[in-house]
Design a protein around this nucleic acid. Sequence first.
DNA 1: TTCATTTCTTAATATAGATTAACAGCCAGT
DNA 2: ACTGGCTGTTAATCTATATTAAGAAATGAA
Lengths: 193, 193
Amino acid sequence: MKNLLLQNISKHVTLTPAEEDIIFNTFSTVSFKAKTIVIKPGDEAHFTYFVLKGILRSYTIDDNGTIHILSFAVPGWWVADMYSYLTGKPAILYVDVMEDCEVLILQKCDAERLFNEVPKLERFFRILTENNLIANQQRVLDKMALTAEERYEKFLQKYPDIVNCLPQKYIASFIGVTPEFFSKMKSNLLRKK
Amino acid sequence: MKNLLLQNISKHVTLTPAEEDIIFNTFSTVSFKAKTIVIKPGDEAHFTYFVLKGILRSYTIDDNGTIHILSFAVPGWWVADMYSYLTGKPAILYVDVMEDCEVLILQKCDAERLFNEVPKLERFFRILTENNLIANQQRVLDKMALTAEERYEKFLQKYPDIVNCLPQKYIASFIGVTPEFFSKMKSNLLRKK
DNA sequence: TTCATTTCTTAATATAGATTAACAGCCAGT
DNA sequence: ACTGGCTGTTAATCTATATTAAGAAATGAA
């Protein structure tokens, strides 16, 4: 099961069997039922999850109680409160489970030890973070430059497989519109074609 | 002048004099006049700038010709088309000069060589990228959860020194509103207090 | 100084998307 | 088979922000 992790890492750096062993032994596996809240604002969330099975999401809730989804995490993806993980301060996000899941946990302190033992892994995380950064920069610009419809079409292209297994109100929340407007927008799109 | 760079690096990692020398010799200094476009979409922008003097910005222009500013870069900050720099593909952003500037240039290939010669520098860039990621994630959420007014107040807190030396239409573009609305919003804020 | 350009303000009008509300469909649990 | 709670739809109304336009103020080059 942990193979998914090694596969993932090997996309960016090449590990020796010995290094694979070290990494293998650092992660522990955990399962969560759907609807479990695994991180909430204020927590000391000094760890990252790597998803083996199921779906999670990260989000905030604003003063009106509205949920704003920052990311979905499906198998092969990482999810964390990066702020808490990186700074050591209390978390600012919620992370919860949308479909029963199995995840690997990496504690921040273990990560730092690993970086010294296996420098390639530091390179791997640098690249992972870089890609994540590019995606988030693009999302900032998309929210400013594109209409909701265009953002939806981008979402469809980028996550074609997620779309069908997710209640659509979550997609609305990810692209940044209300479920009602999203519904209307979708039926407008159908009418156009 | 390059001291600013070493100061910057030393915030996250500690270098030996020998390492400082290696780094020192890899960067070259360049000056640009205000209004120079130093990167435009389509360019092979496989480098990063470190700002010593002056101000630059990165942005896109949408189909209507509207400018959307992704970042400002003042002394001590880095600016690049991260997409082009990291993937080697053509740039997607504009970067131009808002105030006569002096920058250090780091070519991607030099960076990779440096990472092997001075692994601490790879760590430095990992941390830099991580912090940048956190800021961009927060900006995605802010654009979804906050009003324009709230985003402006956050901007004031985060960049108190930039505000006064920048035409306000650039601030409007950064927080994601039109200059006209921004002007109205500001006079409303004054009236409230 | 002067002229031209850029920037800022104000106001009228327009619109994308939010809010509210009512209802229908769909499960999961009893 | 029923119930209650999620989820999605539709429609009316509302609002934050955009657009357009025009003039005023500031800036900068000649």
